[in-house]
C-alpha cells in the first residue's frame, strides 16, 4: 500500500450514510442481507441519502414495500422512515388506501419487476390510471430473485432461468410502456449504474404531484448473472459472450446494454431487442391528482360548492 503514496487511503472509507440506515442505526455497521454484488444495496443507500439530504419528513413519506429480495431494503432504508411490508404485488393498492385516508401523505412504493408487472400488474395499471400522488420505484433485475431465479415478465428474450431452462420464449413486458399507456404522469427509467441520474429522477418524482414511476435496472448476480452470458442485448453482433459472475461484470453489462432515449429514436425494434432505453419518458403536470379530484367531489357532496 505505502508504495503507492499518500494519495491513496490506507483504510477502508466509511460510508457516511450508514449511520442513518436502519441496520446501521441499530448496530452501528453496514447491515444487509443481499448477495455481494447485488444492486439493491446501492438503491437502499441512495434512498437513505435522499431521505437524509433532503431532510424528508418521515411522517409525510410512508414507505410501502412489496415482496421480493428488495423487501430487505428495510435494513438499509433511513431509520426514521415509516415502513410497511405488504403482500406480493399489492403495494400500489395499499398506497392508494393510505393516500386517500390521509391525503397529506405521499407514499413511496418499493416494488420489483415480478411484484409490479407480474402478480400486481392490475394494481399498477390502475394506480397509474388514477394518478394517485405517489412515487413508485420498480426494481427490474430481470428475474425472480427471492424465490431462486425463475423467469419474470421482464426476463430478456432468450435468457435462461430455472423455469425456462432452454430459453425464455416470451416477449418481455415493459414497465415504461405500460405506465405510459396507463396514464402515469412522471415516467423515467434509469439503472443502478447511473446513481446520480437516479437521484435526480427520484427528487423530481418526490416533487411531482401525481403518479411517478421510475424503473431502475439492477443486477441480480446470483440468479440472472450466473445463468446468462453478457451477449444478451448484443445478439445482432453474434459475439460468443462471457460469463457474468461478478457484480462488476454485471454493472458493465448493464451500462453497455442501456441506450439513451434520444439515441434509441433512430433504432428499430430488432436493434432494441433486449436493450434498456433510459431517460425520462413523460413529465406531465397538467393532469389532476386523484385525491385532489376526490376532495372536489367531497365538496360537491357536502353541498359546499
Amino acid at each position: 500500500m505505502s508504495d503507492l503514496g499518500p494519495r491513496y487511503p490506507t483504510e477502508k472509507p466509511v460510508q457516511p450514510y450508514i449511520q442513518y440506515s436502519y441496520g446501521g442505526y441499530l448496530y452501528g455497521k453496514y447491515n444487509s442481507l443481499f448477495c455481494a454484488g447485488c444492486g439493491y444495496g446501492i438503491i437502499g443507500h441512495l434512498f437513505t441519502r435522499m431521505f437524509e439530504d433532503e431532510k424528508l419528513d418521515p411522517k409525510l413519506y410512508p414507505l410501502i414495500i412489496g415482496v421480493g429480495c428488495y423487501t430487505q431494503i428495510v435494513t438499509l432504508a433511513h431509520y426514521k422512515a415509516q415502513k410497511i411490508t405488504t403482500l406480493h404485488g399489492r403495494a400500489p393498492a395499499v398506497a392508494t388506501g393510505v393516500k386517500m385516508a390521509n391525503p397529506n401523505l405521499k407514499p413511496i412504493v418499493f416494488t420489483g419487476d415480478g411484484d409490479c408487472l407480474g402478480i400486481g400488474g392490475n394494481h399498477f395499471i390502475h394506480i397509474c390510471r388514477r394518478n394517485v400522488d405517489c412515487t413508485i420505484l420498480i426494481f427490474n433485475n430481470s428475474i425472480y430473485g427471492m424465490t431462486g431465479g425463475q423467469s419474470a415478465p421482464t426476463t430478456l428474450y432468450g435468457a435462461k432461468s430455472t423455469t425456462t431452462p432452454y430459453k425464455v420464449f416470451e416477449e418481455r413486458s415493459d414497465a415504461v410502456k405500460l405506465a405510459l399507456a396507463a396514464g402515469a404522469t412522471y415516467i423515467a427509467r434509469t439503472t443502478v449504474a447511473h446513481p446520480r441520474t437516479f437521484l435526480k429522477y427520484f427528487k423530481k418524482a418526490l416533487n411531482h404531484k401525481g403518479t411517478s414511476v421510475i424503473e431502475v435496472i439492477t443486477p441480480c448476480l446470483t440468479y440472472f448473472g450466473s445463468k446468462n452470458l453478457d451477449n444478451l442485448g448484443a445478439e445482432n453482433l453474434g459475439l460468443p459472450g462471457n460469463k457474468m459472475d461478478t457484480g462488476g461484470k454485471m454493472i458493465e453489462w448493464i451500462k453497455r446494454n442501456t441506450i439513451r432515449k434520444n439515441q434509441a429514436k433512430f433504432m428499430d425494434d430488432n436493434e432494441l431487442l433486449n436493450r434498456y432505453v433510459i431517460g425520462e419518458f413523460r413529465y406531465d403536470t397538467s393532469k389532476p391528482e386523484y385525491s385532489e379530484v376526490y376532495a372536489k367531489i367531497q365538496k360537491v357532496a357536502m353541498g359546499d360548492d
Partner: peptide, 19 residues
C-alpha cells in the same frame, strides 16, 4: 377498486393511515 384484492388492500392501507 379494480378488484377485490385491491379493495381489501386499500382498506388495510386506509386503516393503517387512521381511517
Amino acid at each position: 377498486m379494480e378488484d377485490e384484492l385491491a379493495s381489501i388492500n386499500a382498506v388495510m392501507g386506509a386503516s393503517l393511515a387512521g381511517a
